[in-house]
Every structure is written in structure tokens, then in C-alpha cells.
Amino acid sequence: MFIRQIHYLLALAKTEHFGRAAEASHVSQPALSTAIQHLEEELGITIIKRGHHFQGFTEEGESILQWARILAQNGEGMRQAAAEASHQLTGVLRIGVIPTMAT
């Protein structure tokens, strides 16, 4: 299982469309579909109801989506911890300036 497969699955859940999910993930639609099929094969379950168009997630797929969200969140936490360990500052810094004090 690769984290990118998890991100593809989450993109599909968000857009509910294979083409738009692929575009959001910066891959081709066949690449996204194949990655999700490989994930299904690895897990031994059907995650997505397929037809000519996206038809939704199976009951098992809904359960997998919950785990996918947790994995993605933990992956981001791991990246932040690694950045902190290497003493790199990350995050958003907002500074406000009063116009009369700027000169």
C-alpha cells in the first residue's frame, strides 16, 4: 500500500468523479483508476461501485475511507515531526502592520 493510493482514494471521495480526482491529483485518469484497483486487490475487497461513471463507495469502501482519512492525517503529522526534528520552521506566519507606523 502506498500513501499516494490513499490520496487518490480521498480525492475520489471529495470529487466523486474519476476524471476530476485524477486532475486534482495531477495524474491521468487511468493511472488513478489503476492505483485504486491495486489497492482493492491488496486489501481483497471492492471499495468502489463501478459502472460507466462513478457510482459511489461500497459499504466496505466507506469503512476504508475512514481509515484513509486517518492515514493521511497521520502522514501529515509525520512530515511535520520530521521537519521539527531537522529544525526547519513550518507553518503560517501572519504579521499585521498599522499604516501610520509603517513609515
Results as ranks from 00 to 15, higher is better:
residue 23 E to Q: 15
residue 4 R to F: 10
residue 67 W to A: 14
residue 86 S to E: 05
residue 26 H to L: 15
residue 100 T to S: 13
residue 72 A to Y: 02
residue 4 R to Q: 11
residue 39 L to R: 09
residue 88 Q to G: 00
residue 76 E to H: 10
residue 94 R to C: 06
residue 1 M to C: 01
residue 86 S to H: 00
residue 26 H to K: 14
residue 61 G to M: 07
residue 22 A to W: 03
residue 29 Q to G: 03
residue 18 F to S: 02
residue 16 E to T: 08
residue 23 E to W: 09
residue 90 T to Q: 09
residue 30 P to M: 06
residue 25 S to K: 03
residue 34 T to F: 03
residue 3 I to P: 06
residue 20 R to P: 00
residue 42 E to N: 08
residue 30 P to R: 01
residue 67 W to S: 14
residue 7 H to C: 02
residue 31 A to L: 10
residue 102 A to F: 09
residue 19 G to D: 11
residue 30 P to I: 04
residue 80 Q to C: 06
residue 98 I to T: 13
residue 82 A to S: 07
residue 92 V to H: 10
residue 31 A to I: 07
residue 97 V to W: 13
residue 5 Q to F: 02
residue 55 Q to C: 13
residue 36 I to Q: 03
residue 53 H to D: 14
residue 65 L to V: 05
residue 96 G to W: 08
residue 48 I to F: 04
residue 39 L to H: 08
residue 34 T to G: 04
residue 17 H to E: 10
residue 61 G to I: 10
residue 42 E to I: 07
residue 34 T to V: 10
residue 87 H to N: 08
residue 56 G to V: 06
residue 67 W to M: 14
residue 44 G to S: 03
residue 75 G to K: 08
residue 46 T to K: 15
residue 68 A to F: 05
residue 102 A to R: 12
residue 83 A to V: 01
residue 103 T to F: 13
residue 79 R to Q: 12
residue 73 Q to G: 08
residue 82 A to T: 07
residue 74 N to H: 12
residue 11 A to Y: 02
residue 24 A to M: 14
residue 36 I to S: 02
residue 19 G to H: 04
residue 41 E to I: 10
residue 15 T to Y: 15
residue 6 I to Q: 02
residue 48 I to E: 03
residue 52 H to Y: 12
residue 46 T to C: 10
residue 87 H to V: 00
residue 70 I to W: 10
residue 23 E to M: 10
residue 90 T to H: 13
residue 70 I to P: 01
residue 79 R to A: 11
residue 18 F to G: 01
residue 43 L to F: 07
residue 39 L to D: 01
residue 45 I to H: 04
residue 80 Q to R: 14
residue 67 W to R: 14
residue 36 I to A: 06
residue 33 S to P: 02
residue 69 R to G: 04
residue 84 E to K: 10
residue 33 S to Y: 15
residue 47 I to R: 04
residue 38 H to M: 08
residue 14 K to T: 14
residue 103 T to G: 12
residue 25 S to I: 07
residue 82 A to W: 04
residue 33 S to T: 12
residue 29 Q to Y: 08
residue 67 W to P: 00
residue 52 H to L: 14
residue 40 E to K: 06
residue 42 E to A: 09
residue 74 N to I: 06
residue 88 Q to Y: 06
residue 47 I to Y: 07
residue 51 G to D: 13
residue 101 M to G: 00
residue 78 M to I: 14
residue 4 R to K: 12
residue 24 A to S: 12
residue 20 R to S: 09
residue 43 L to I: 09
residue 102 A to H: 08
residue 32 L to A: 00
